[in-house]
Simulated assay, not measured.
Amino acid sequence: MVTLKEDNMLRNWILALLFVLFGSPAYADAPPLRDATRGELLYSTHCITCHSAKVHWRDKKLVTDWTSLRAEVRRWQEVSGLGWGDDDITEVARHLNALYYHYPKPD
């Protein structure tokens, strides 16, 4: 004969197993997480420790358009010795442009 304690324990194990297999119902309607872009990953890995949002909105900013944004990304990756290629520089510039600057990009 199964005791009440054993019955409750079995029910808890089944609920835990269902939770693990199917997740929490609270997350069922949550939007899927987006994948980070290469530019975002490079920036967050190599630049974010020194750059906060404040550096992108200071009064004496050097970035005034898409071309100067790419030039500053190129300059700072050289100063940091990162050795990024043109594609990486463009990806980081795209990330910063989408996040902070919103300059029109040439095709």
Rank of each mutant, 00 (worst) to 15 (best):
W57F: 15
L10F: 11
G23A: 06
A36N: 07
L82D: 09
T90M: 00
T49I: 14
K61W: 07
Y100P: 09
Y103D: 05
S52F: 09
S52W: 14
R34E: 10
D7M: 10
W76M: 08
A53S: 15
E72H: 04
V73I: 15
G81I: 14
C47D: 05
K54H: 03
L42T: 01
S52H: 14
Y27D: 06
S52M: 07
S68D: 13
L82G: 06
L21Y: 09
D59K: 09
D35K: 05
T67G: 11
T90F: 00
P25L: 12
L82M: 15
L62E: 08
Q77L: 10
T67M: 13
R75Q: 06
I48Y: 02
K105F: 02
D87N: 03
N8E: 03
M9F: 07
E78M: 07
P31K: 14
V20F: 15
L10C: 04
S52K: 10
E78N: 12
K105H: 02
P31F: 07
E40G: 00
E72A: 05
L4C: 06
L42V: 04
H51Q: 02
D7H: 09
N97V: 06
P32I: 08
C47A: 07
W13G: 01
V79D: 03
K61H: 11
L62S: 06
D35Q: 06
E78F: 15
A71Y: 11
S80E: 07
D107H: 13
V55A: 10
H51D: 02
S44A: 07
G85M: 10
V2T: 14
L41Q: 04
N97E: 04
L62H: 02
R11E: 03
A36Q: 08
Y101N: 06
E6C: 03
V73S: 04
V73E: 04
G23C: 03
A26P: 02
T49Y: 11
T45M: 08
L17M: 06
P106H: 05
R75P: 02
I48F: 02
M9H: 09
E72M: 13
Y43N: 00
A26K: 12
A36M: 10
M1D: 13
H56I: 06
D35I: 02
A71W: 12
A98Y: 06
Y43K: 00
R94A: 03
V63D: 04
D7C: 04
Y100D: 10
L82E: 08
Y103I: 08
A16M: 13
P32K: 15
T45H: 07
Y43I: 00
W13P: 00
W66M: 05
F19Q: 06
A26Y: 15
S80G: 15
L99E: 15
P31D: 11
Y100H: 15
D87C: 01
R94W: 03
R11I: 07
D88R: 01
C50Q: 08
W76S: 01
S52E: 14
Y100I: 12
L15Y: 12
I48S: 03
L42K: 01
P32S: 10
G85Y: 05
S52P: 03
L10G: 05
D35S: 02
H56A: 09
E6Q: 12
